[in-house]
């Protein structure tokens, strides 16, 4: 087990190098010229642009820029972005609130998705199953923007039950509504995955065996049906953490949260290569950590899966 962990951590290095190289290449190949855009519609004289490119090492060959970036990773100092702000500070500002939001959304999608999915799976074809089917369809078809906007107007502006925006006080209460909105689509996945797995497993032989052995309905459900149904669900949820963090741009916009999604998107459109790659690198680590955790969970959910 420990050696497995050790190997996985060692494997971080090639993944890190591969991901950053690929990302850096992409930002490098991105069309347009971010420096030319700094002057707005007025533009900047060519000589000035050259000076700025030199300042940010953008005149260097690709591989040199990449090596400079790696140096930044080692020293944890990526210099400043085109706005003159410390890139490490930009990243450090964006992650805490996003992390909080993503974890809240994760809990919501896990608790409600698994809960509803379990009931629906056990009562397949019944009324409750149909109801959650319609609910998940709605969440798939109605875009996050619309869902978020309507909730904001109804719950925030009209009823005043929850804060309208998050702004600069990201606490549990103000993040509750955005977390629900953010969890929406993933909730549909978790629900459908749980429902199907539960429906499948509830007819499995070992369940009947368990029932035949006289185990109670509750025990059969939690110990056997649910546990054996959770592998795809847990896999989804684990990988979803990273997606919730990087993909929350719409939710962040609606509720005015200054987090990773918006910062990353801005950096991409502005062509801030170092910010983009550095931020995404943090996301890579989150993905890997979450996936590793899930892999370890497999062994707990299904004792037959072993890591040596």
């Amino acid at each position: 087990m420990l050696s497995y962990l050790g190997r996985r951590i060692l494997q971080l290095i090639p993944v890190f190098l591969g991901a950053t190289l690929l990302l850096y290449a992409m930002v490098f190949l991105r069309p347009g010229d971010p420096i030319a855009a700094l002057g707005g519609e007025r533009g900047l004289p060519e000589a000035t642009q050259e000076a700025i490119r030199a300042e940010y090492n953008l005149d260097k060959p690709f591989i040199v820029q990449y090596l400079l970036f790696l140096r930044g990773v080692v020293t944890l100092d990526f210099g400043v972005d085109f706005r003159g702000r410390e890139i490490t500070e930009v990243i450090a500002n964006a992650f805490p609130v996003t992390m909080q939001l993503a974890l809240m959304a994760l809990v919501i999608e896990a608790v409600f998705g698994i809960g509803f999915g379990l009931i629906a799976g056990l009562r397949k074809g019944k009324f409750f199953d149909g109801t959650v089917m319609v609910l998940s369809l709605t969440l798939i078809a109605v875009p996050t923007f619309v869902l978020g906007f309507i909730m904001q107007i109804v719950v925030g502006v009209n009823l005043g039950w929850l804060p309208v925006t998050v702004g600069n006080n990201p606490d549990f209460v103000s993040l509750l509504m955005p977390a629900i909105v953010l969890a929406g689509t993933s909730f549909a996945y978790v629900l459908r995955l749980t429902r199907t797995s539960v429906a499948e497993n509830s007819t499995a032989d070992y369940v009947r065996t368990a029932r035949a052995r006289g185990l109670g309905r509750y025990q059969v459900t939690t110990r056997h049906v649910l546990r054996n149904s959770l592998i795809p669900v847990v896999t989804f949820i684990g990988a979803d953490l990273g997606a919730l963090m990087s993909g929350s741009i719409i939710t962040e916009g609606i509720f005015n949260i200054h987090g990773v999604g918006g910062t990353l998107y801005d950096a991409i459109t502005r062509g801030e290569s170092v910010t983009v790659v550095a931020m995404t690198t943090v996301l890579v680590v989150v993905y890997i950590a979450a996936n590793l955790l899930v892999d370890l969970l497999y062994a707990a959910l299904d004792p037959r899966i072993r890591y040596a």
């Binding site: 925030g156 502006v157 309208v164 925006t165 702004g167 916009g253 609606i254 005015n256 918006g262």
Partner: peptide
Amino acid sequence: IAYTEEDAAYNDLLS
């Protein structure tokens, strides 16, 4: 106050 979307600011104004 920094806003990334005008709609968010507008809804804040409404409330």
